[in-house]
């Protein structure tokens, strides 16, 4: 086993897997834990850079105020849309029970 100065343990892997709604087993979490630690360890390289006076660059091309005129356009075909849906009913997209609220 490789030693990394930085560890992402299996519990953390399971936590982030749940955040992105990814079912994983305990064994898989172990495997990812090793890889993640290596990757994040390498990325900690950025800590050497002094960015105290540097603004973040969310976008590289400076466009701004790109707006759309408020005009309603026709809908796309519901039939075509529902063809791709795994399940539908009466024109609705059908999903399994929804428990709780977000």
């Amino acid at each position: 086993m490789t030693e990394h100065s930085f560890q992402i343990d299996a519990d953390m892997v399971k936590h982030v897997a749940y955040l992105v709604r990814l079912g994983i087993t305990d064994e898989e979490a172990q495997g990812f834990s090793q890889q993640f630690s290596a990757i994040i360890d390498y990325f900690n390289l950025l800590n050497e850079v002094d960015t105290s006076d540097t603004p973040p660059a969310t976008q590289v091309i400076h466009a701004s105020m790109v707006l759309r005129e408020d005009v309603a356009q026709p809908s796309m075909s519901r039939e075509e849309f529902l063809k791709n849906a795994p399940e539908s009913e009466d024109g609705y997209v059908k999903v399994s029970t929804v428990l709780g609220e977000e």
Binding site: L19, L22, G23, S96, V98
Partner: peptide, 27 residues
Amino acid sequence: DVIDVYLQTRRAGFGDEVKRRIMLGAY
């Protein structure tokens, strides 16, 4: 429930590299 559907669908539908990257993204 629907959360189960998410968990299973994304487990079965995404390959390992995709899984790695989206988990690291969430992290």
